[in-house]
Design a protein around this nucleic acid. Structure first.
Length: 534
RNA sequence: UCCUCGGUAGCUCAAUGGUAGAGCAUGCGGCUGUUAACCGCAGGGUUGUAGGUUCGAGUCCUACCCGAGGAGCCA
């Protein structure tokens, strides 16, 4: 069933015709326009080589050149991609060293390509054994060459019988090297954000995060979406999505003034006030109303003084937008997308997920498996309020129609009442943004929140108001300036169509998948109030 | 930003208002195809910061800084 990349590209080029509102899972391939079957499956191209070198070199080609060694990814060696007896070289960092005075040392080396390190057996006969090998400590950078062998000990299938170990980088003061081969708290690791990628926990988080990002692009690509690079800098601060960071090149100590005494922004870099984006949605709607299926995936900035385990000042958001679609289509998309993400992690990062299940969150794997197999519960806001009113649980805040749901209410719905992800739809218009489509009842809008057990609101979305006169009324009603939205309103003047979309907090998705509780521990270098050291 | 709890060795944590300690890590020695190895010895401290109460403060009080949990804002 393996197919060449070239043939696959030709086949993709042939695809035409309508794309129905059904969603494929990444890796499953398949053309929705044709009946499902083996022929429609398009396996993704296998990664071409287990070696780490770039440009890519296969071990065989090196042999052909008379070279006896090749650089291997540790993940490939642990996966049995190299034959026992092969001479291999790995490059990485020491996790632990255990000595045997009988004349050998065991060095666990990791290179970030897999959760597990590989065991390098260093015999006492190495010329630098006493001088260097026995001085190796956690964190040293090494190049190890030797013969791949079936392990004599327990705990690993293969190991490297070293014939040469070169130490490239020493740890200059092992006593104060912050990463020790022991359990560290996440709070401590956060203070050494430049070194925490070397820990097994954060390495696993980084690989899972990458897997989710790749799976995101794969899902949208395979379903006919275009990735739109919406701007980071915006001149609109009235998007209703929270406080924005101002950007300016004016001299803060001595800014130009208007006659009235205010700051004269017309002399600033962009000739007007400018901010970091709080959402790419409004911009991506312009491309949606031209290209049908689009999405953004990039950083987003909020200047809120939020000190919680769920908020960052700089975070990554994914915002798909689909034309000729309503709220129900939007919910379908959210469900298909989330399931494809989690399926990818289960398929591709079993080693890391096993670690999370063992040490971080016992349910990490089982709840993802359940997630991809069960459909989301769906209910209207009005039904949700009903359920909450009948709940035997005592809430700190009373439930009343018209009020926004509190965290405790959302948790009850998905964790206790339904025990699965829940999509709550059709909220009172007073508590939602101006661009959400007014329902026929006149008092609710076509908004939805996806609530996931253990993480809360992971997706917020809506059908957009495509009727100009209704949109204008909502903008005015909420005290906003019509003129500020002139180009957004143009989209309704010229060939308007029903469309919908949502925003997924990417970092929150990583929280959910890994079971890591704090959002500051699933992003490489977190930014939050009073936190921008690295 | 609000409420609650916390900050002691490189890390994780003990210590009734009365001599600051353990495990791990590090160094040295011992032992072993080891598995966060194990055994022995050693070094390692302005108890978050600044004040205050007291004969005496890690411990009590005040302010500030930092962290955690919860809340608000939201993704």
């Amino acid at each position: 069933m393996q197919r060449s990349c070239g043939r696959r590209i030709r086949e993709l080029g042939r695809r035409q015709g309508p794309v129905p509102l059904t969603y494929l899972s990444p890796g499953m391939g398949g053309d929705p326009a044709s009946p499902p079957g083996p022929e429609s499956r398009l396996p993704s191209c296998p990664l071409p080589t287990p070696v780490l070198s770039f440009p890519l070199r296969r071990p065989e080609s090196q042999h052909a050149k008379g070279c006896l060694m090749a650089d291997w990814k540790i993940s490939a060696l642990l996966a049995g991609k190299a034959p026992v007896g092969e001479t291999v070289t790995v490059k990485g960092w020491v996790r632990t060293r255990r000595d045997s005075k009988a004349g050998l040392s065991f060095v666990a080396v990791h290179d970030g390509t897999a959760f597990d390190p590989i065991q390098v057996v260093a015999p006492g006969s190495l010329p630098n054994y006493a001088g260097e090998i026995q001085r190796l400590t956690t964190g040293c950078a090494v190049v190890c060459t030797g013969v791949l062998a079936a392990s004599q000990g327990k705990g690993q299938s293969v190991e490297i019988q070293a014939t040469n170990i070169e130490v490239l980088g020493w740890v200059e003061d092992p006593e104060t090297y912050p990463v020790q081969p022991k359990r560290h708290t996440m709070e401590y690791l956060r203070e050494i954000a430049h070194l925490r990628p070397r820990t097994n926990t954060f390495g696993a988080v980084a690989r899972v995060r990458n897997c989710l990002a790749q799976a995101t692009h794969r899902f949208f690509h395979e379903n006919g979406f275009y990735w739109i690079h919406t701007p980071i800098i915006t001149t609109s601060d009235a998007e209703g999505a929270g406080e924005a960071f101002r950007i300016s090149t004016l001299d803060l100590a001595n800014p130009p003034r208007t006659p009235e005494g205010g700051i004269d922004w017309s002399q600033d870099f962009f000739g007007r006030e400018a901010f970091l984006t709080v959402s790419g949605q409004l911009n991506v709607e312009a491309f949606c109303c031209a290209m049908t299926r689009v999405y953004t995936f990039g950083p987003t900035f909020r200047a809120e003084n939020s000190n919680t385990s769920r908020h960052l000042s700089e975070f990554w958001m994914i915002e798909p937008e689909i034309a000729f679609a309503d709220l129900s289509d939007d919910a379908d998309l959210a469900e298909a997308y989330l399931k494809s993400l989690f399926r990818a992690v289960l398929d591709e990062r079993g080693d890391d997920m096993a670690f999370f299940a063992q040490h971080v969150e016992p349910e990490a794997v089982s709840r993802l498996e359940a997630f991809v197999d069960t459909s989301f519960e769906r209910m209207t806001y009005t039904e949700a309020v009903d359920h909450l009113g009948k709940a035997k649980k005592a809430f700190e805040f009373p439930v009343k129609w018209g009020m926004d749901l509190q965290s405790e209410h959302e948790r009850y719905l998905c964790e206790e009442l339904c025990k699965r992800p829940v999509v709550v739809m059709d909220y009172p218009k007073e508590i939602k943004a101006f661009y959400m489509r007014l329902n026929d009842d006149g008092r609710t809008v076509a908004a939805m929140d996806v609530l996931a057990p253990g993480i809360g609101e992971i997706i917020g979305g809506s059908q957009r108001e495509e009727r100009l006169e209704v949109l204008d009324a909502r903008i005015t009603e909420m005290g906003l300036d019509l003129q500020e939205y002139w180009w957004y309103r143009d989209l309704r003047k010229y060939g308007t169509v029903p469309h919908a979309g949502f925003g997924l907090g990417f970092d929150r998705a990583v929280n959910y998948v890994t079971g890591v509780k704090n959002i500051r521990d699933v992003i490489p270098f977190p930014r939050a109030p009073k936190l921008a050291e690295f």
